[in-house]
C-alpha cells in the first residue's frame, strides 16, 4: 500500500471526534447550548470538571484572580474554549500511546504544540482582541499531521527526521523529500475526517505561510508567528531545530503593539509551565 493510502486508512481508523470526547456529545455539538446547561452537564463529570478548572487557571493566568468553578471557567474562557479544551484533552489522550521515534517523542511534540497554542492566544490578546477563543486549540492542532506520520509511516518518518537533523533542514522540507507530502497536507486530511471548523483546518493547512490562499485570517496569522516564536524559545521540539523567517505579509495583519513579544514572553512562560504539567502528566 502506498504511503498516502496508509495515512488515509489510518485516519479512517481513528475515532470520530465527538464520540471520543469525555463529555456527552451535546456539549461539543449543540450550538444552542446555554452556558448554564453546559456547566450543569460538565459538572456531572467530576474528573473532567477538575481538569477544566485547572486548565482554565493555567491558561488564563492573569490578574483577575483564581477560577474555582466550572461556571467561572466558562465565564472567563467562553463556552467555545471550554468545549475546545474538552477536544484538546481528548485528542492528546487519543495519541498518548504513540511510541517515541529515535529523533522525536510525543512529549516533545505536544510541548511544542501547547507552546504554540498559548503563544497564539497571547498574540491575540496583545492585539486587543477581547474574544480570543479558538486561538489556543488552533495552535494545539497546527502540527497534528506529524502525529499521523508518527503513527502510520514510522520508517519513513524516522528517515525524514534524520535527514532534517543531518542536513539542518526544516522538517517540512525533509517530509517532502522522503514522504512526498508534508504534515500540513496530512493534517488537513484528518481535519476533514473530523469535520473540524474551518479555522482549525486552515491553521493546520496554512500555518507555514500564515495566509489562507493569500487571504488574511487573524488566527492562522497568529499561529504562524507563534510557531516561530516558540521555536526561538526552544519550547518543545517540532522535529527540527530551525527557525523560519516570519512571512512579511503576515505582519500587515497582526496589529501588535511595539515590543509585544518582550511583554508576552514572561507571562507565556508562566502559562506554559502550568499548562504542560496539566496536559502531559499521566
Amino acid at each position: 500500500m502506498n504511503l498516502i493510502d496508509r495515512i488515509y486508512d489510518g485516519i479512517h481508523s481513528l475515532p470520530v471526534l465527538p464520540t471520543i470526547c469525555y463529555a456527552p456529545n451535546d456539549i461539543v455539538d449543540n450550538p444552542k447550548l446555554t452556558e448554564k446547561d453546559a456547566a450543569r452537564i460538565i459538572s456531572t463529570d467530576q474528573v473532567l470538571t477538575a481538569k477544566i478548572v485547572r486548565a482554565a487557571n493555567a491558561i488564563c493566568c492573569d490578574n483577575n484572580g483564581q477560577i474555582d468553578s466550572i461556571t467561572q471557567a466558562i465565564e472567563r474562557l467562553g463556552i467555545t474554549d471550554v468545549k475546545n479544551l474538552i477536544a484538546a484533552f481528548s485528542i492528546i489522550d487519543m495519541f498518548s500511546k504513540n511510541k517515541s521515534l529515535e529523533y522525536f517523542s510525543p512529549i516533545d511534540f505536544w510541548s511544542h504544540s501547547i507552546g504554540v497554542g498559548l503563544m497564539s492566544r497571547h498574540i491575540g490578546k496583545s492585539m486587543g482582541i477581547k474574544n480570543v477563543e479558538n486561538f489556543f486549540l488552533a495552535g494545539i492542532l497546527h502540527d497534528i499531521g506529524k502525529l499521523l506520520f508518527f503513527e502510520y509511516a514510522r520508517v519513513e518518518y524516522s528517515q525524514a527526521l534524520q535527514l532534517a537533523q543531518e542536513k539542518n533542514m526544516l522538517i517540512r522540507n525533509a517530509e517532502m523529500e522522503v514522504l512526498g507530502i508534508d504534515h500540513s497536507f496530512a493534517g488537513e486530511l484528518l481535519a476533514e475526517y473530523w469535520k473540524l471548523p474551518r479555522t482549525f483546518k486552515h491553521a493546520i493547512r496554512y500555518h507555514h505561510s500564515g495566509l489562507v490562499e493569500d487571504k488574511y485570517n487573524i488566527i492562522v496569522a497568529s499561529v504562524h508567528i507563534a510557531d516561530i516564536m516558540t521555536r526561538l524559545l526552544s519550547i518543545g521540539f517540532p522535529g527540527d531545530s530551525g527557525v523560519p523567517q516570519p512571512n512579511k505579509k503576515v505582519w500587515a495583519i497582526l496589529k501588535l503593539p511595539p515590543a509585544a513579544f518582550s511583554s508576552i514572553t514572561p507571562k507565556f512562560l508562566e502559562n506554559y509551565r502550568s499548562t504542560t504539567a496539566l496536559f502531559l502528566d499521566h
Binding site: L232, L233, G242, W251, P258, F261
Partner: peptide
C-alpha cells in the same frame, strides 16, 4: 545561529530579543 534570517522590522527584532532574554 538557529535562524538564517536577519530581523526586517522592529517586531522581528523584539522576537529575537525576548527569546535571547529567556536563553
Amino acid at each position: 545561529e538557529r535562524s538564517d534570517w536577519k530581523p526586517s522590522n522592529p517586531l522581528e527584532e523584539d522576537m529575537i530579543n525576548a527569546a535571547a532574554k529567556y536563553v
